[in-house]
């Protein structure tokens, strides 16, 4: 008979035994070793029926398709831009996906995005080698001007955003700041200097207390104590709701792929230097 060795929402470290027997199933962040289910990383346990999994508490952002991230332009290339993603990998923003405008051959690309520019962009593809393609086509995707940037633990982003963007829209509304939260843990805040500083404080507080239940109430009273009024009728705007797709940000460390999508096989492309060659091949085959 199987036995659970931990409770729900326990902090476990790698190598800790979570359950014995075949009655329980190993979920994300765990593995089975003979009769036992063992923790494969640091995190909080989550027991759902027979499945035991681990919600990660630490770690770098892992790029996922369809995530909205805030990146920094680090290089301007011939056919696009290289973007820092606050993960282990840099991303590529190609001309095709960068803007709706027509870009002439030989144009100065820094006119669109230059070094150090912050952009809100969407990940359109992640290959098996973690080559990332970004796009700027979509609602709310834009270059950011001014404001300030803070980095938070990417695993706490879902909490900062809240259900359907409720948390971030509450802070936005009360402080009058413009806030964009990237799935990669980069948060951009812009407003009056005083409000901006306070919004930073609030976001940091949400990050610190992300695990507490009833956090929305706490944040609300925190805002009110400091002289901000929270409008109960405030609804998340278009760009907040954008992150609200529950399939998109789950924060449980599981990587989900749409049906039929495979990460291995398929075309392998090496950033900038592959495309001209592809074109040559096409030309040859047409002949």
């Amino acid at each position: 008979m199987g036995e659970l060795l931990v409770q729900d929402k326990n902090i476990v470290v790698p190598g800790e035994e979570l359950a014995t027997g075949m009655d329980y199933l190993p979920g994300a962040g765990t593995f089975r070793d003979g009769e036992r289910i063992v923790a494969g990383r640091l995190g909080l346990t989550s027991v759902q029926g027979r499945a035991v999994k681990i919600i990660p508490l630490a770690g770098k952002y892992l790029p996922k398709k369809n995530d909205i991230i805030i990146g920094t332009v680090t290089d301007v290339l011939l056919n696009g831009w290289r973007v820092d993603t606050n993960s282990a990998y840099t991303a590529m923003l190609t001309l095709k996906d960068a803007t709706a405008e027509f870009i002439n051959k030989g144009d100065d690309l820094t006119r669109y995005y230059s070094f150090g520019d912050l952009i809100v962009s969407k990940i359109v593809q992640v290959t098996s080698q973690n080559l990332i393609d970004l796009s700027m086509k979509g609602p709310g995707l834009k270059k950011l001007h001014g404001g300030r940037v803070i980095r938070v633990n990417p695993h706490k982003v879902p909490r900062i955003i809240g259900k359907q963007g409720s948390m971030v829209s509450m802070v936005k509304n009360a402080t009058g700041c413009r806030i964009v939260v990237g799935q990669n843990g980069v948060v951009w805040i812009q407003g009056e200097p005083k409000d901006e500083t306070f919004a930073v404080k609030t976001v940091e507080m949400i990050e610190e207390q992300a695990h507490i239940s009833g956090l929305t109430e706490k944040v609300k009273s925190f805002l009110e104590e400091n002289g901000y009024t929270v409008n109960p009728d405030a609804r998340p705007d278009e760009t907040d709701g954008y992150y609200s797709d529950p399939e998109r940000h789950h924060g449980d460390g599981e990587r989900r792929y749409p049906d039929g999508e495979r990460r291995y096989g398929g075309e392998r492309r090496f950033g900038s230097d592959r495309r001209p060659r592809d074109r040559d091949q096409e030309r040859r085959s047409r002949r």
Binding site: V13, G29, F31, G43, L57, A58
Partner: peptide, 11 residues
């Protein structure tokens, strides 16, 4: 390494 959130099978 565990604090960095990496996948590890044991300490």
């Amino acid at each position: 390494l565990a604090d960095a959130g990496l996948s590890m099978k044991d300490m």
